[in-house]
């Protein structure tokens, strides 16, 4: 009885006059890591942007966490990482300020950031390995570091679903590996990831399921290409997904609100503090 985090049925999207998606059926279950693959112009970015509520559907239905997109309001449960653009704002902003934007879905206007907000920002910056650059201008970072800062921004909101649009495009291998490592930690705590990739790179071992698009249609939905169990028929569960879900079930106990039942008593630093970016204790 895994929750259906993203459920897309018969989705048509038209950008300008151009039809981009033609009847997409697609879903992501809780705890899964699903990647969208496809050539440029196949519609994969448009699909995640539609899921994030950024482009309107011409026809079909999108549901997030079991709610139709139209009435969905729990945006704090989704962390969106846009494709990195070189266009920065006209005024310098520090890494910390940009990452702090990730808390806005949880904050009210005119109310200053709480202790929990500030701690979550610090942890998210730690997670992507930019702690030394916290107070540097975001424009002084390399492309890969900027991309990591955007991932930290999404992580700071402590989302249940991370949606990433080409996180590795134009990113140096060091940052790609850093990102893969951050993502492993995220997935291990039972959260869900939907990402658009051009090539799998260091992320290949993390991905449970690949959905390939061509000209706005789904042409493959199953194990990622190049995997030993690739070619298994659609719907068969890859081993890693099951392992991740098992991990998900156990880590639920670590998150606030579920008590600390899964933590042994003799544990040297077990505590019941506020959860971190991804709901762990630190």
């Amino acid at each position: 009885m895994t929750e259906r985090v993203v459920d897309v049925r018969g989705l048509h999207v038209t950008l300008g006059e151009q039809p981009v998606l033609h009847g997409i059926d697609f879903h992501v279950d809780a705890g899964e890591v699903v990647t969208l693959l496809g050539a440029n112009g196949s519609g994969k970015s448009t699909l995640v942007r539609a899921v994030a509520g950024l482009v309107p559907a011409a026809a079909g239905d999108i549901a997030l966490f079991g709610r139709p997109l139209r009435s969905f309001r729990e945006w704090r449960r989704i962390g969106y990482v846009p494709q990195r653009t070189t266009a920065a704002g006209g005024v310098p902003a520090t890494v910390k300020e940009v990452v702090a934007s990730g808390r806005l879905a949880r904050r009210k206007p005119f109310v200053p950031a709480s202790r929990a907000d500030r701690d979550a920002v610090t942890r998210a910056i730690d997670l992507v390995g930019l702690a030394d650059r916290t107070n540097d201008g975001i424009d002084t970072l390399s492309g890969g570091q900027q991309q990591r800062a955007l991932i930290a921004r999404a992580a700071a909101g402590e989302p249940d679903l991370l949606v990433l649009d080409e996180p590795n495009a134009g990113v140096d291998i060091r940052s790609q590996e850093a990102f893969a490592r951050s993502l492993r930690t995220f997935v291990a705590s039972g959260r869900t990831v939907l990402l658009v990739l051009h090539e799998m790179g260091p992320l290949a071992s993390l991905v449970d399921r690949a959905v390939a698009l061509d000209s706005g249609r789904v042409v493959h939905d199953g194990p990622p290409p190049g995997r030993a169990d690739a070619g298994a028929h659609e719907g068969q569960e890859p081993g890693r997904a099951a392992a991740a879900r098992a991990a998900a079930g156990m880590t639920e106990d670590l998150t606030p609100g579920h008590g600390a039942a899964g933590v042994p008593d003799d544990h040297p630093h077990s505590n019941e503090e506020q959860g971190g970016p991804f709901g762990w204790n630190s």
């Binding site: 934007s101 879905a105 955007l150 921004r153």
Partner: peptide
């Protein structure tokens, strides 16, 4: 947030 990255702000609701 709106001035820095309009699209991201929208995705935050």
């Amino acid at each position: 947030a709106v001035c820095q990255d309009e699209e991201y702000a929208r995705a935050c609701g």
